[in-house]
Amino acid sequence: MSTQIDPRGQRFAASVTSVVLVAALATAPGALAVTLLSLQAALFATAVALGVQRTPVAAVYRSVVRPRLGPPSHTEDATPPRFAQGVGLVFALVGLVGFLTGVDALGYVATGFALVAALLNATIGLCLGCEVYLRIPTPLIAATTRSTT
């Protein structure tokens, strides 16, 4: 029914994301940081729009990394990581707005949140969709449920 993916590919993608975001923060504020953050936002957007298994990073994982690791012991549903990529996209876009409008503090904080999420995903496989949903106030959940169904 739903698309199944190799969970190690998600860890790999989160590692790449972490490296890009660290580079963006290290070079911020400036044109290079904005370029790196835009690149990462584009990767997040690709994962949300086409699926996490159809990003350039996923292609690199399939052609370079997985042949060295062997087949996965189990696969996972692609929906939760896709949701997490959407959260990452929001943070990256807010960060971009911050750096582009000169509100650097906003850029640092939003990019920092995206980095924390990516690092937790890469290290302990944190499932963002499991953490945030029940902490959202009920009326907001009702609103989003209505709009998506």
């Binding site: 290290a26 911020a28 640092y108 937790l120 290290t123």
Partner: peptide, 24 residues
Amino acid sequence: MTTGLWVVLACLLLVVGFAVYRVR
């Protein structure tokens, strides 16, 4: 050290602390 690198350091500390707590 630049502001960005301080942010990276803060993120790393936060992640290590949270990851240890979670694994436990």
